[in-house]
């Protein structure tokens, strides 16, 4: 099932987005470099309530889908651009790496999709009121060379 699995599944997800659209506050910016390679998507998300931490701001997410997606989770990070900052959140490092259990192999389920992941990240921001980075952010950003999926996060604070 390895080869071709992610390609077909992503085509299905794209078809559904084109037919039904995405929920409010989520926009598909691009779905891959070319038609042949649709394994790298960009999506913009907004927080819909008046949370002052994220009001009037748009954030960009990059999804990298492995060949074995959706058996394996996508790698999802925030992208920093002049008009797209990295949101302040105790689980979001200043280099855009997100610590979210559903994106790790322990929390992932193959019934998740790009859309459902965006919605989870939206609600992770919505429910946050701490204007801070994770502990050890500076050190982590300086030292980290691993890809997000290979990092062992400690989910030490489950209240956020």
């Amino acid at each position: 099932m390895s080869a071709g699995m992610s390609g077909r599944r992503l085509m299905k997800e794209l078809g559904k987005i084109h037919n039904d659209g995405l929920p409010p506050g989520i926009e598909l910016v691009s779905s891959g470099e070319s038609e042949a390679d649709n394994s790298d998507w960009l999506l913009d998300i907004r927080v819909l309530d008046d949370n002052p931490l994220y009001k009037d701001q748009v954030y960009r997410l990059r999804f990298r889908f492995p060949k074995a997606y959706p058996i394996e989770p996508p790698e999802v990070t925030f992208e920093n651009r002049p008009d797209r900052p990295i949101p302040m959140h105790p689980h979001v490092y200043s280099n855009g790496i997100i610590c979210l259990d559903l994106l790790g192999s322990q929390g992932w389920s193959p019934v998740q999709s790009a859309q459902s992941v965006c919605m989870s990240i939206q609600s992770m921001l919505t429910s946050n009121n701490k204007n801070e980075r994770p502990e050890g952010d500076e050190q982590f950003v300086k030292m980290n060379k691993s890809r997000p999926r290979d990092i062992q996060f400690l989910y030490d604070d489950n209240t956020v």
Partner: peptide
């Protein structure tokens, strides 16, 4: 839910 293909259709393989 995994491949998002209709049950009348086949899995990706």
């Amino acid at each position: 839910g995994i491949c998002q293909v209709h049950f009348d259709g086949t899995c990706p393989t």
